[in-house]
Computed example of a mutant assay.
Amino acid sequence: MTSQTSQIALITGGSRGLGRNTAESLARRGVDVVITYNARADEAQKVVAAIEAMGGKATALQLDTGSVETFAQFAGELRQRLQEIWGRDQFDFLVNNAGTSHHNSIEKTTEAELDALYNVHFKGVFFLTQTLLPLIRDGGRIVNISSGLTRIIVPESGPYGAMKGAVEVLTKYLAKELAPRRIAVNVVAPGAIATDFSGGVVRDNPDLNKRIADMTALGRTGQPDDIGPMIASLLSEDNRWVNAQRIEVSGGMAI
Rank of each mutant, 00 (worst) to 15 (best):
G219M: 02
V48W: 02
L235M: 09
S146V: 05
S105E: 05
R141K: 15
A192D: 14
R203E: 13
L94T: 13
R246Q: 10
V169L: 14
Q245L: 05
I142H: 01
T216V: 14
L208P: 08
K210Q: 15
I227M: 05
A213P: 08
T22Q: 03
G30S: 12
L170H: 07
R81V: 07
I227K: 06
N96M: 09
K108C: 01
N243F: 02
G139R: 09
S236Y: 11
T150D: 11
T150H: 11
L18F: 01
A98L: 07
D32I: 00
S15I: 04
A175V: 06
L82T: 06
L132N: 07
R29W: 00
S157W: 01
I193D: 05
S147D: 14
D42F: 01
I193V: 15
V167P: 06
V120Y: 01
D214Y: 03
A217H: 08
F122L: 15
F91P: 03
A217M: 14
N144M: 09
A189G: 13
S105V: 03
G139L: 02
T5R: 08
E177P: 01
D225A: 14
P229H: 08
D64L: 01
G219F: 03
E111F: 11
A244N: 11
A58C: 15
V201H: 07
I227N: 02
I35K: 00
Q73R: 10
A192N: 15
I136D: 04
N97G: 03
A39F: 03
V31M: 04
F93Q: 13
Y173I: 02
A27K: 08
V33A: 06
L235A: 02
V187R: 04
R240A: 14
Q4T: 09
R182I: 00
Q7M: 10
L61E: 01
I193F: 06
V47C: 06
N243G: 04
A49Q: 15
I231V: 13
K172N: 00
G124S: 00
I106F: 12
N144W: 09
